[in-house]
């Protein structure tokens, strides 16, 4: 008999049962501590490999049928991640190649030409240069689209064409329109390092603009600009010579929707306590 059994006998079981061995027998099979056979947990990490789900025509099956909304959202994120990471990696490679062959002092155009002729494999993986995008995406595609939406005559004089328009109708249309291919510039921001950056929009996601930035000294790079707490500027050329342009400002905090969701959206005024960066900072400091 142990000390514990004595304790039980004296203190706890004194009234109900006098012999503790009876109780031990009853309890013992439940108290046995034995190792349990471990079941192997299936660790299935879902990996969406982009190449594996391409059908014969070269189109992603999941994008065609939008049954699973979350799935498509995930795929776009994966695409963008893959695109940005790989392009940044290849730009590093290209810069390395240029410095090795003493081509780093060349002008920007001749840099791209050298890569196109000599290193054609690398050239395909690098994002297209800013100048080509500015000509093809902005001037040939986006400006005619917006001029058509706002119903501006590019041939007429700008004063007569603008006096016919209604400002509030134009602003409502601009809030809904597509910003892919537009040229934007950061004017005001809480992050002072971001001010002055400009580029052409490749993708307009929910919380960011993905942009190609003009690098005058070397190869162009991809930048991600946050929408929150920044104000973007658009300059829309209205005449054919591009001498005159109208200026609009996008307030990023209120446009935190994807372009497809923005169409049926009813915008509402909100409390402006998060827009205090809009006011000149020198006012508040003094």
């Amino acid at each position: 008999m142990n000390e514990t059994t004595n304790f039980i006998k004296e203190q706890l079981l004194s009234k109900s049962k006098f012999n503790p061995s009876e109780l031990e027998e009853r309890v013992n099979p439940h108290l046995v501590v034995a190792p349990i056979a471990k079941k192997k947990i299936k660790q299935t990490t879902k990996k969406y490999n982009i190449d594996s789900k391409v059908s014969k025509n070269g189109v992603l099956k999941h994008l065609l049928v939008q049954n699973n909304y979350r799935m498509t959202n995930k795929l776009t994120k994966l695409h963008l991640n893959h695109f940005i990471k790989s392009s940044n990696k290849h730009i590093k490679e290209a810069n390395y190649v240029l410095t090795k062959n003493d081509k780093a002092k060349l002008e920007k155009k001749s840099m791209y030409e050298y890569l196109k002729t000599e290193k054609s494999d690398l050239y395909k993986k690098i994002p297209i240069s800013y100048e080509i995008l500015f000509q093809k995406m902005f001037k040939d595609m986006w400006v005619p689209y917006i001029v058509d939406v706002l119903k501006i005559d590019p041939t007429a004089d700008y004063k007569t064409s603008l006096s016919k328009l209604n400002l509030n109708v134009c602003l409502t249309k601009l809030a809904i329109c597509d910003f892919n291919g537009c040229k934007i510039k950061v004017v005001k921001s809480e992050n002072a390092g971001n001010i002055g950056k400009e580029g052409i929009v490749l993708w307009d996601s929910q919380k960011t603009f993905i942009v190609i930035e003009n690098n005058k000294l070397g190869l162009d790079t991809i930048k991600i600009l946050n929408k929150s707490k920044t104000v973007f500027e658009i300059q829309l050329p209205i005449t054919e010579n591009c001498k005159h342009s109208i200026i609009f400002h996008i307030i990023g905090d209120r446009l935190m929707y994807r372009s497809s969701d923005r169409v049926g959206k009813k915008f509402k005024n909100k409390n402006v306590k998060d827009l205090m960066y809009y006011i000149n900072a020198e006012y508040l400091s003094s």
């Binding site: 602003l171 809030a175 109208i246 446009l255 915008f267 509402k268 402006v272 205090m276």
Partner: peptide, 21 residues
């Protein structure tokens, strides 16, 4: 100044999304 900003945004923008000028 925040109340002034609220008022000016109502006049110069569409529901505080896109502003002119």
């Amino acid at each position: 100044i925040s109340s002034l900003l609220n008022g000016r945004l109502r006049v110069k923008s569409y529901q505080q999304t896109i502003a002119t000028g």
